[in-house]
Design a protein around this nucleic acid. Sequence first.
DNA 1: TACAATTTGTCCGTATGTATC
DNA 2: TGATACATACGGACAAATTGT
Lengths: 252, 252
Amino acid sequence: MPPQPPAATPGTAPVAHLRVQRVRPAYRQVADELRTQILAGTLPAGTRLPNEGELGRAFGVSRSTAREALRVLSSQHLVETHRGVQGGTFVSEPDPARVVEDVGSALGVLVMTPQLHVSDLLEARLLLEPAAARLAAQRADAETVEAVRNAAAAHRDARDPSGFVGHLDFHTTLLMATGNLMLTLMGQPVNDVLRTRLRREGVEAHEWDKVDACHREIAEHVAEGRADDAEAAMRDHLVELRGLYEREGFWT
Amino acid sequence: MPPQPPAATPGTAPVAHLRVQRVRPAYRQVADELRTQILAGTLPAGTRLPNEGELGRAFGVSRSTAREALRVLSSQHLVETHRGVQGGTFVSEPDPARVVEDVGSALGVLVMTPQLHVSDLLEARLLLEPAAARLAAQRADAETVEAVRNAAAAHRDARDPSGFVGHLDFHTTLLMATGNLMLTLMGQPVNDVLRTRLRREGVEAHEWDKVDACHREIAEHVAEGRADDAEAAMRDHLVELRGLYEREGFWT
DNA sequence: TACAATTTGTCCGTATGTATC
DNA sequence: TGATACATACGGACAAATTGT
């Protein structure tokens, strides 16, 4: 690793109050270089990288160091490794589901701190999902409408004995029904965090019934293309849910 | 790896397990175990982990394997490592800025695919930021108002010779002015991606002047607490910006 | 200023598991 | 069945960085 151009990394926030990273380790330089090439499209998805030994030689580092760089990229879902002949390290296909997972997990950490309150999540959802309901009502095709209806109809108690893995949360389905992946990316992690934090045992059955009724009503508005009604119904629904969360749910 | 029963330890070959399709490598098991403990709060932020050798022995793996596990966690910003005496591996403080970075980088990958269009980002922003402008106008205190005004006044040409690192993008500042971190978390990665994708050389000076004028107008609405005006002005501004982006900016 | 102690960083050599042909 | 090519894992050694004496 002869070249280390930015001796002091500029622009990076001085978050580590006490410690300054004075040198970038070689494994990080290699990882950064490869990440840059992947993000720039120089290494498109599906590309097979050289094996670990060659990769190390190409960067002037040992195989172990190249390995650690690959660990970094693989943990960020930028590459995948496979063993065996015809195996190796491949640039990953971008996967929205993984992004949602990662963001959700990061939010899970933040939501335990005083920096991010549950009320912030509820407010963000209140901004996002009524608008999503409107868009869904304006755009959903027959197939999407069917999916939304199914999600609303799906009974939400978990006593269901059959496998039934196809069930997606209603709010998730509605976000996807907008046809705008970015809305799913923003809204879904919030829903994930809220769902895992809610103490469901504190909510009574008739309240769940009301939730289900709201879902079905929204689904019908979407199906009939009534954008205004869908948006308003979703807003009412979320306001009601917020009361539920604030009354019962959280440990912070 | 004692805690994971079906682990394939290198020396002994557990041939009896026929269903084991996917063996998780040892470094991944170690990383997952540590991550679980961090997310559960068993290892609070600031905790110093044992050094790499001891950590390896504690998990029944070699130091190299323990290191690779730490690389995974460190690349997810869950731990930080430092060299030297008094160095070591420490559980990280949750950092919203890093989350924004990570999401932005993930979006950068997705935005190159047919799954996520630039128009999706623009639409999401059009949902989010007018609402943010409204909230900012309703809530901003004197200090925040000052920050928003400064961001709007900051001249945006990069010829500025002095260091001037305090300058934050106006849209970023406005998101933060809502006091809701979640809105920043959702909106900022979008802005980052859009900013890096825009071909700025295709935009003329008088258009930048108009952008700046819009920013100052919004800032004044926020400062005076005119929520409706702030929201409307931001919406108009974004619609105009969208035209700019769609006319000039992208390579996809 | 020099030196020692501690910890991560880097390298090498070797062996083994795994998947494909 | 065996050969091949790759990732995975180990253990030891030394280098570099940081802090305290």
